[in-house]
Simulated assay, not measured.
Amino acid sequence: MSKTNAGYFFEDYRVGQVLTHATPRTLSAGDVALYQALYGPRFALQSSGDVAEASGLPRGVVDDLITFHTVFGKTVPDISLNAVANLGYAEGRFLSRVQAGDTIRAESEVIGLKENSNGKTGIVWVRTKGFANGDRPVLEYVRWVMVRKGDVTAPAPETMVPELAEAVAAEALQVPEGLDWSDFDFDSSGEPHRFGDYAVGEVIDHVDGVTLTDPEHMMATRLWQNTAKVHFDVTARPDEQRLIYGGHIISLARALSFNGLANAQLLAAINGGAHANPAVAGDTIRAWSEVLDTARTENPSVGALRLRLVATKGAPGALRGEDGKYLPEVLLDLDYWAFIPI
Score class of each variant (00 low, 15 high):
M1G: 13
K3S: 14
T4Y: 08
A6M: 12
V15C: 02
V15R: 01
Q17D: 07
H21V: 06
H21Q: 09
H21E: 10
P24M: 09
P24D: 10
T26F: 08
A29V: 15
A29W: 14
G30M: 15
P41G: 08
G56E: 02
P58V: 09
V62H: 00
D63E: 14
V71E: 05
V71L: 09
V71C: 06
G73V: 04
V76F: 08
D78E: 12
S80H: 06
S80R: 03
L81V: 09
N82L: 01
A83G: 15
A83L: 10
N86C: 12
G88H: 04
E91S: 10
G92T: 09
L95H: 14
L95Q: 12
G101S: 05
D102C: 12
T103G: 08
I104E: 03
I104C: 06
S108E: 00
E109S: 04
V110E: 03
I111C: 06
G112A: 06
G119L: 01
T121Y: 09
T121L: 13
G122P: 07
I123T: 08
T128I: 06
A132F: 04
D135S: 09
R136N: 15
P137A: 15
E140P: 13
K149N: 02
K149Y: 02
V152D: 07
T153C: 05
A156E: 04
E166V: 13
A172Q: 13
Q174V: 15
E177K: 15
G178E: 09
G178W: 05
D180P: 03
W181Q: 03
D183N: 14
D185M: 02
D185S: 01
S188P: 11
S189M: 08
S189G: 10
G190K: 07
P192D: 14
P192A: 03
G196Y: 11
D197F: 10
V200T: 07
V200H: 07
G201Q: 08
V203H: 06
D205S: 04
D205I: 12
D208Y: 05
D208M: 11
L212P: 01
L212T: 07
L212Q: 01
D214V: 11
P215V: 07
P215S: 11
H217C: 11
M219V: 14
Q225I: 15
A228N: 12
A228V: 09
K229T: 12
K229Y: 10
F232M: 06
T235C: 14
A236G: 10
E240V: 15
Q241W: 14
R242T: 09
L243V: 13
Y245G: 02
G246Y: 00
S251M: 07
L252G: 03
R254S: 03
S257R: 02
N259A: 13
N259P: 12
N263L: 03
L266P: 00
L266S: 00
L267M: 12
G273I: 03
A274C: 12
A276D: 01
A276S: 06
A276M: 00
N277M: 08
N277L: 08
N277S: 09
A279T: 06
A279N: 04
V280P: 02
A281C: 03
D283I: 05
D283H: 06
W288E: 04
L292G: 01
L292C: 05
T294P: 13
A295W: 00
E298A: 15
K313S: 14
K313E: 15
A318N: 12
G321K: 08
D323R: 02
D323C: 03
G324E: 00
V330M: 08
L332M: 02
W337L: 00
I340D: 00
I342N: 10
